[in-house]
Design a binder for these strands. Structure first.
Lengths: 167, 167
DNA sequence: TATTGTTATACTCTATAACTATA
DNA sequence: TATAGTTATAGAGTATAACAATA
């Protein structure tokens, strides 16, 4: 009786808090990727920029910044570093001479492959205590939620995020 | 053929990246809770401190800080705010006169209940696109991973986190 | 007039170091 | 000597505001 974890008032302890779990997992993941990408200027966020730039549909740096939740002023410094490292360069967009297209260099693509291998290892360790089905549900569930949130906030209005989740 | 999303080189796009999904979900959750707890000094983190302090096994503020990934110097300011708000107070630990016990006031417990109701609503909206089984797997999966990480880093050595996830 | 990108600046958050008091 | 807690300060990261170029 005294052993039942859900009988006392502290039934809703930190352990049962989704926010706590999400925070711990996210911080651990961030920390691990930061360590694994210590040699990459800009770290995990630069990696995500590379992924977005290597993919097709993403054109200018503002779109990428929004997609990744990065401020456009921060994006400038980030891209400066990546360009200096020779993994990416900015080319003028022929359709809009204000904008810049992000082009990943061959060296950048090679780095990308390497980083993805490192990431896979980290993820395997992170999900080590789940069986295959659970992993799959966790991955696809998080992905689906993220896509929905991303869709709700397609270009500018990042405040809808809050509004959607507030009430 | 051209429609197959996994045929091209951008098979591993942002959408398939666990880190991206985790980041988007975490940021959205953090933003929503921050908005929902705008009236609470210290925001979501203060809420977590209240939960930890209201639970039994957590005694002094350093233990709580470690559990939540908060620096002990930051904890001081956080507790100052909470004490000023009258939801918590520090009492000397009779067993160790250096340490302080965290005691949640009746007002604090009432606030805690209210915040937990707000949180439940936010979580429902966040997980809206998952069915019951998926929700359960996501919750328990994240919780299990978080507990494992937390256990691997019981008191001091926060670096083991990285080491565990590095290779 | 609005938007992309840049720069400089200010601000927020967090960590470091030094200190007091206990153990 | 080591630890709990506090304080002041330095640092990293981020956002704000003003700007130039283009739409």
């Amino acid at each position: 009786m005294a052993q039942d974890p859900c009988e006392q008032k502290n039934c809703r302890d930190l352990d049962g808090d989704l926010g706590w779990a999400l925070g711990v997992v996210f911080r651990a993941y961030a920390k691990a990727t930061r360590a694994a990408m210590a040699d990459v200027p800009g770290g995990p966020r630069a990696f995500q920029v590379l992924v977005a730039a290597a993919g097709d549909q993403h054109g200018n740096q503002l779109a990428v910044a929004r997609r990744l939740g990065i401020d456009r002023t921060v994006m400038t410094y980030l891209l400066d570093d990546l360009e200096r490292a020779g993994v990416l360069h900015r080319t003028p967009d022929p359709n809009d001479r204000r904008a810049r297209c992000l082009v990943v260099t061959p060296a950048g693509l090679q780095l990308l492959e390497d980083l993805q291998r490192r990431l896979a290892t980290i993820e395997d360790h992170l999900l080590a205590c789940l069986d295959d089905d659970e992993r799959q549900v966790l991955r696809s569930g998080l992905r689906r939620i993220a896509l929905r949130l991303d869709e709700a906030d397609p270009v500018t209005d990042r405040c809808t995020l809050m509004r959607e989740l507030e009430t």
